[in-house]
């Protein structure tokens, strides 16, 4: 069976796996963004807090994904839970780091003026600082998403959802008729989706970037 015949005969399964893969990555990126921005907001005023948060999240990123998944299995079991946890943890560093950088590079005079004209602390944060930090946060999300696309493939080892299942099934059926086809479909699928998501980020950037700072 040629690759295209394989794709033709399995396209429903491929679509489901692609959908599950993308949805896992997008959702975990969103969760990581919420957590990452909250952490960034909590620590960016304190040099020590920023240092600790960045050091911790960058240490997390150093951990091999296969090892982290292995550590999560005894605690969280198999399937979606270890997958989501691992993906969220990996996505944190770029978002936390960029949130801190984005917030701390807001012109102090803008902050001073905002306080001076009577904006509340929360108002300054939500209406000024986070808006100005948004391009940096978005860039962090983009890096995280790209990373997660690849890491999510490994999650299939712990029975996680997504295109990784095709790769592992290729590995298990080595020598079988469709082993290579499955692994190629899984790998190419991830690359393709990663490129599509990246394009989506460019579009999202265009749509959400405040015009005055573009």
């Amino acid at each position: 069976m040629s690759f295209w015949e394989y794709v033709g005969s399995r396209w429903e399964q491929l679509l489901v796996d692609s959908y599950l893969h993308t949805s896992a990555v997008v959702q975990t990126t969103l969760v990581a963004t919420v957590i990452g921005v909250l952490v960034g907001v909590a620590v960016y005023r304190s040099p020590i807090g920023s240092t600790v948060a960045t050091a911790l999240t960058s240490a997390i990123l150093t951990i091999p994904s296969f090892a982290l998944l292995g550590l999560l299995i005894p605690v969280l079991g198999l399937g979606v839970r270890p997958t989501v946890t691992a993906l969220v943890l990996y996505a944190l560093l770029p978002i936390v780091r960029n949130t801190i950088v984005g917030l701390s590079t807001v012109d102090p005079s803008v902050r001073d003026a905002a306080r001076g004209i009577g904006m509340s602390r929360l108002g300054v944060l939500t209406r000024v600082e986070l808006r100005l930090a948004w391009p940096a946060v978005l860039a962090g999300m983009r890096v995280s998403t790209q990373m997660l696309m690849g890491i999510a493939a490994i999650a299939a080892y712990a029975k996680g959802p997504g295109l990784g299942n095709l790769i592992f099934s290729g590995l298990q059926r080595v020598g079988g008729a469709n082993a290579i086809n499955a692994a190629v479909a899984g790998t190419l699928g991830v690359v393709l989706l990663a490129l599509l998501l990246d394009a989506a980020y460019v579009l999202l950037g265009r749509l959400t970037m405040p015009r005055g700072i573009r």
């Binding site: 003026a113 000024v128 005055g212």
Partner: peptide, 28 residues
């Protein structure tokens, strides 16, 4: 915050909000 809303404040670096239009800045 209430106090500051009744006191105009202008500084050397101006501190206009770069992501808002001139009109939005004035209307804050």
């Amino acid at each position: 915050d209430q106090l500051r809303r009744r006191i105009g404040y202008a500084i050397q670096q101006v501190g206009l909000f770069p992501h808002m239009t001139v009109g939005e800045n004035v209307g804050v």
